[in-house]
Design a binder for these strands. Sequence first.
DNA 1: GTGAAAGCGCTAACAC
DNA 2: GTGTTAGCGCTTTCAC
Lengths: 337, 337
Amino acid sequence: MTLPESGKPPTSADVARVAGVSRSTVSYVLNSPPGARVSAETRERVLKAVRELGYAPSAPARSLRSGNSDVVLFPLPLQPMGQLLEQFIDEFTEALRRQDLNLLIHGDRYARGVDAARAWAALRPLAVMAEAARLTDGGVEVLRRAGVRAIFAWGREEHPGVPTAIFDNRDTGAQAIRHLISRGHRKMACLVPSGPLAGLGQERWEGARTAAEDAGCSLERVDVGYIREDILAVVRGWQQQTDPPTAVFAGNDDFALMIISALRECGWTVPGDMAVVGADDLPFCDLVWPRLTSVAMHTRTMGSGAADALTSLMAGKPYKHRNHMVVHPRVVVRESG
Amino acid sequence: MTLPESGKPPTSADVARVAGVSRSTVSYVLNSPPGARVSAETRERVLKAVRELGYAPSAPARSLRSGNSDVVLFPLPLQPMGQLLEQFIDEFTEALRRQDLNLLIHGDRYARGVDAARAWAALRPLAVMAEAARLTDGGVEVLRRAGVRAIFAWGREEHPGVPTAIFDNRDTGAQAIRHLISRGHRKMACLVPSGPLAGLGQERWEGARTAAEDAGCSLERVDVGYIREDILAVVRGWQQQTDPPTAVFAGNDDFALMIISALRECGWTVPGDMAVVGADDLPFCDLVWPRLTSVAMHTRTMGSGAADALTSLMAGKPYKHRNHMVVHPRVVVRESG
DNA sequence: GTGAAAGCGCTAACAC
DNA sequence: GTGTTAGCGCTTTCAC
C-alpha cells in the first residue's frame, strides 16, 4: 500500500483522485450497474488505485444511499444445535453467496419480540430469518417498517404472521420406526427427552407414534431426563417384563449412547437383545461399538432451501412447500439397529 | 402502531414531526450525550412517538455520521468447535453487551486474507476478532485503513502483526496427565488425533508430554485417525504387551468414548484395566457407563476475557497476559479415570 | 431547552 | 464515457 498513514479511511473520492477520474466513475467500476460504460483502460486505473489504497467501500454509506443492503440477518438460535449449526450456516452462506448476499449472524440468542426486532432492524438488513418463537407481531411490524424485504420464520411451530419454515422432525421419528419395522420389530419403545430438547423430542415421538400406528405395531412412550440413572431404571423395568420391546428409538444420539451403555450395564446386548436407533447422526455414531444407526438430516438441502425461500420471498412470490422445510431425514444404517 | 403503511421506513424526522420537536431533540433523547438537557415532558413525547411509529434508528446512517459503530465482528471460525462455539458466543455477547457493544458473526468461514478483510472492513466494525490464520499482513492493513479500532487474533499460533489470544491447549494435556499421576499411574499413553483436530491434539500432546517428563513418568504417543478400527488395533497391541500402560489420555471426548468402546470390546474394564480421561467435557460424559472423566475449559472466562482484551485494545492499551488467553482447564473427575 | 444547518461516503439522475 | 450534483438518515456544533 503506497499511501502514507492518514487518519481517516480512504473514500471513493481518494480512489478517484489517485486514478484521476471522478467519483461516479469509481462507483461505476465497482458496481457495474446496467448501462454503465467505462473504458477498459479507465477501469484498470481505478482498480489499481483501489488496490494501492487498500480501499473497501463503506457498506453503511452504500446502504444509506441506495436504501438497499446485501445482508441477510440470522439471529443465533436459542435452541442448542451443536454440530448442526455449523453445517447449516456453511450451506446457507454458500447458497446466499451465489446470489451476492452476505450472511450475518446476530450474537444475542436471548432477545426476542420488539426489543430484538429493533436491534435487527437497526442494521437495515435485506432479510431476516429468525426462530418463530422470537418473532412477535410487534416485532414483525418493526421489521417491516424498517424496510426489511423478507421476514422468514423457522422452527417447529408455524408463525401466524409470517412464512415459516417448519423443520419437520415428525418425519425423523417416522423414519426411525419404519426402519425398525422393516427389520422385523413389532414391539418398540421411544424415548422422549425432557429438558432443552423437549420440543424436538415430542415432535419426533409424534412421528414415531403415527408410523407405528399406521403399521399396527406397538410403541411405548418413555419420558426420561438427561440423567443416566433414569435410563437405567427404564432398562431394569424392561428386564422385569415377560414381553419387553425388542427395539428402541432413542430420540437423539446422546440418548442412544446412554441407553446402549445402560443396556450393557444390565447385561443385554445391542442389537441382539435390543436394537437401538438414534437421531442427528453425530460424529460419534461411527466411533463406538456397536456403530450407532441414526437418522440424519440433510443439512445441505436445508441451507439452500432456506436461501431459495428467502430469494423467492424477496422477489415478492409467496412461500409455498406447504410451509414445510425440506429436511429429508434418512436412516444411516450401522450396527446398533 | 398508529401510522398508516407508508412506503418508507420512519426516520428521526418522522419522530420529530409526530412529537412536535426538532430532529436534534430526538437525537438527544435517544442518545443522551453528555451535556444534553431535555425536559422530562419532551422526552416522554419523543419516546411515545418512537413507539407509535415502530421507529428503529438506522445503524448505517448513525455509523456514517458519527464515524463510529457498536459492532464487534467475529468471523465464524473455520475450526470446528461444536458445543464450545455456542457457549463461547453466549459469554462473549453478554460481556460485550455490558459495554453497549454488539456481536455480529460473519457467516463465511472460508474467506481469508485481503478478500476476507475487505468484506469485514466494508461493515466498518469497531473491532474484529478473527482466527490468526485468516489474518494476513495485507488483510490487517485493509482493516486498519478502514478505521477498525481493534484487531485481535486468536488461535494456536501467534500472529506476527497483531495481538493474539492463544488458547493454550498444552495446559489441557498437562492437567489430564497430572490428574492420572495423582491417581497413581506411572505408565500412560496419549492419543493424538489426525484430521481436522490435529493441531489441537498436537498441542494437548505437548502439554501431556511435558507434564509426564516433569514427573518422571512414561508417556507413549499414539497417533490415530477417526477410525474405530485404528483404535481397536491399538488396544490389541496393548494386550500383547507384558507391561502395557495403565491409563490413557484420549485427547478429546470422542476419542475417549471410542477407546472405552474398544477396550470393552477386547474384554478390558474401565477404569479397572485401563483408566481413560477425555477433554472438552461434552454433555455425553455424564451419560455413559462409566461416566467419563474429562478436562473442561472455562468458557465463561474465555468470553469475558476476549471482551476485556478488545476493550483494552480499543482504549489504546497494549494487550498483555503474555498473550495467553485464560482457558483455565480443569479436570472434571468422574468414573473413567 | 430547542432548532437550523452542515456533512459523513456513497449512488444515480442528468448534463456534457 | 465521464463529470456534476443532490440527497439517503443521522449527529453535532452553534445560535437562539
